[in-house]
Simulated scan of single mutants.
Amino acid sequence: MDTPTYDIVISGAGPAGSALALILAGKSPRPERIALLGRQFHAGRHQDGGVDPRTLALNHGSRVLLEQLNSWPAESASIDTVHVSQRGRLGRALITHDELGVPRLGSVVTYDALLAAQHQALRQSGVTLLEAASTPLPGPGHVLFQHEGRDLSGSVAIQSDGARPQGIERHYKQHAVLATVRASRPRKGWAFERFTRQGPLAALPHPQQDDVYGIVWCCAPEDAARLQALPDHEFETALHRMFGDRLGRFQCLAERHVFPLALHAGPSLISDRTVAIGNAAQTLHPVAGQGLNLGLRDAAQLGQALAPWLARPHTDPSPLLARFAGMRRPDRWLTAGITDFLPRAFSTGNPLVEHAGGLALLALDLAPFLRKPLARHLLQGLRT
């Protein structure tokens, strides 16, 4: 067999794929033999030329990883306290950074700022950056890619391009309305997760200013379309009615966007030399903001698994990739299970279930031995 063009080819230059490329570059004696394929190296723009509207809630573990990779953006907003409640029912829970012994529970960054910081670090890493999007095709002892009319090959291929995973699928019949608002009574360092019968409603501190919040409002598709089309003053009133008085009145600052919500999860190991991480392995409901955090844990553990192989890339990587897939399984499925259960349990409309949810929030608030394991999982994932 001819020598592959690259040791590792990563298809997808989003946050998870970029983080993996940076991790591997730090472990490889020849980082130029790691290729990252994507169409996003000019960060800050969609393919249609617009600015990406997403804000990302990254937990403490994710921030530590990105700081170690010199790819943390200059602007971020800290989350010190998370307030969880249920509209129309008693019971709420507070999770604070003090009780977990960390400087903050997490941070909020914009998607564009994170990607720009990662790509800046990549340009100094030695990794080969290719403006292309491609799907890997398994071959004998290597994986093939197409780039600008010619074949590329890699000993290992990683899919991180957001290709829909094949396996478990659930459509929540919810869309997420994304909005950026100013609050008249902001609470610095506080993030809010409020469960409603239509779906969870999150208010996240925004890196733009202390009184600005990123809103993620999950509701039925027809309601999402209506909320997107409302004049600003009517949307502000509707948001206040659903969220309550904790942050005062709201003022819209930007255009609203709507995204459909679904769970897609498949195996990490696609073939003996191809693995999937991030959104190519699992796309989750945005409740509790776990999607990218889980993808970054995929990247960190895959980088650790491949570190010894990078020193001997002529050897067979298949056993290491199979071991990686097995080690990631518990964290992936537990996190997917939590984010699948919560939005469905709190939106049944069944009063008994809603009261049970309120009692569960009250128990979490009163009993640290119940609250801390859940908080630690959301903070750093399931360690194996």
Rank of each mutant, 00 (worst) to 15 (best):
V108H: 01
K372V: 10
G199Y: 12
G349L: 02
V177I: 13
H147V: 14
T128E: 12
G49P: 01
L122E: 12
T3L: 15
S271I: 05
G162E: 09
A280W: 05
E148S: 15
P313L: 11
F341L: 13
P73K: 02
L36D: 02
L115A: 04
H60I: 01
Q68Y: 03
I23W: 00
G266T: 02
L342C: 07
G295E: 02
T135Q: 11
E222T: 14
T335W: 03
S85R: 09
I8K: 00
Q120H: 15
A203G: 06
A74D: 14
Q290N: 11
F243T: 06
L306M: 07
G61T: 13
T135P: 00
R92Q: 13
M242D: 10
K372N: 12
H285T: 04
L374H: 09
G12Q: 03
A133G: 14
Q174H: 08
S155T: 14
D272F: 03
T81I: 13
A25H: 03
I34F: 08
G349M: 00
Q198V: 08
L94E: 09
L378I: 11
R241Q: 15
R273C: 10
A13H: 01
W72P: 02
E75G: 14
L370D: 02
P186A: 07
C218R: 03
A363N: 06
A35N: 04
V177N: 06
L178V: 15
A132I: 07
V102K: 03
A375M: 05
E354M: 07
L100G: 09
R33N: 14
P207G: 08
S11V: 00
G139Y: 10
I168F: 13
A262I: 05
L37W: 01
L269E: 03
R197F: 07
G357H: 02
R63S: 08
A375D: 03
P200D: 09
H97I: 04
A325S: 13
L269R: 07
Q68T: 14
R182K: 15
A224W: 14
F259K: 04
M1A: 12
S160E: 02
L137V: 15
V177S: 09
E67T: 08
A121M: 13
S85Y: 05
S160K: 03
G88F: 06
L362S: 15
D161I: 04
T135L: 10
P29C: 06
V287G: 07
Q68R: 14
H97Q: 13
F243R: 03
R328F: 11
Q304K: 07
M1C: 12
A113N: 08
L227Q: 10
L230P: 09
A356K: 08
V84D: 00
A132P: 02
D272A: 14
G199K: 09
I79K: 05
N279G: 08
P308E: 07
R104M: 12
T283V: 15
R383C: 05
R273F: 11
L366K: 11
H147E: 08
R256S: 01
L359T: 11
